[in-house]
């Protein structure tokens, strides 16, 4: 009971990271990360390549281990035991740069797999959920196709629907539009904006600054494994405090 410290009241943040440090061997990938994300908050995480953005969000659902500090997801301390890890993973959806749809399953089966096997829903219930969410990402008519028969943008929307089928409390996005042809970026961003408007708690690693301006409550800028600066988008873009942030924005916005 010490590990699952879910206590009364909904006062705790959805995600809190305190003093998180991670090493790959001798290389420190995360340095004293302290981030708190409230329910319904949307965070955009940005920073140069290799700054540790992926590592950070992958620690939240324990795809990466960390050596120091504490991560809580809706009050549950993410320990290192299988039980708490599984519990947290069911609450946290993740969308990857490379979509990672399962090639041997149809779109519908992709969406039903985890609800059937991890949540033990009935087939009927799982299918109902899957169809509803495919509808929501505007791809219901492709339900019986295989991933290889879809465009990149369609695949990524299926991946979003697949994650939503678990009814997660938080969604993590790791550069969801970076692998897409330019003309498909918008359809995925629109899906994410829709999700944000419905009040989903989101952490998005992305360099789509238009998206950040439109939906983010806060932008967090990382460099060399540490959080350099965090601010609401208006302030972040118009008045960056740190030299590194200015340099990064200059590069990315092409100033």
């Amino acid at each position: 009971m010490n590990d699952i410290a879910t206590t009364a009241g909904n006062t705790h943040p959805m995600i809190s990271m305190t003093g998180v440090e991670k090493w790959y061997g001798a290389f420190q990938a995360l340095k004293d990360i302290n981030i708190s994300v409230a329910k319904g908050e949307k965070i955009v995480l940005c920073g140069p390549s290799g700054s540790g953005k992926s590592t950070l969000i992958r620690c939240i659902n324990h795809l990466e281990t960390y050596q120091k500090g504490e991560i809580r997801v809706s009050g549950t301390v993410l320990g290192h035991q299988a039980k708490t890890i599984d519990a947290v993973r069911r609450e946290v959806g993740m969308v990857f740069q490379q979509f990672n749809l399962f090639p041997h399953l149809t779109v519908l089966e992709n969406c039903m797999l985890a609800p059937l096997r991890a949540l033990k829903l009935s087939r009927q219930e799982a299918e109902g959920r899957a169809r509803q969410l495919l509808e929501r990402v505007k791809i219901a008519e492709q339900a019986d196709k295989y991933p290889a028969q879809l465009s990149g943008g369609q695949q990524q929307r299926v991946a979003i629907a697949r994650a939503l089928c678990m009814r997660p409390q938080v969604m993590l996005f790791d550069e969801p539009t970076s692998a897409l042809d330019p003309e498909m970026v918008k359809e995925v961003l629109d899906t994410m904006i829709g999700l944000a408007e419905e009040g989903m708690t989101m952490i998005c690693v992305t360099h789509e600054m238009g998206f950040a301006r439109q939906v983010a409550d806060r932008v967090i800028f990382m460099a060399s494994g540490a959080v350099v600066e965090e601010a609401p988008p208006a302030e972040f873009f118009s008045n960056p405090k740190h030299e590194r942030t200015r340099k990064f924005l200059g590069e990315i916005l092409g100033h």
């Binding site: 299988a82 993973r89 069911r90 399962f102 985890a114 991890a118 991946a159 994650a163 678990m166």
Partner: peptide, 9 residues
């Protein structure tokens, strides 16, 4: 990773 992230063992 996609499977694990979905809560599968």
């Amino acid at each position: 990773e996609a499977g694990l992230a979905l809560g599968l063992h």
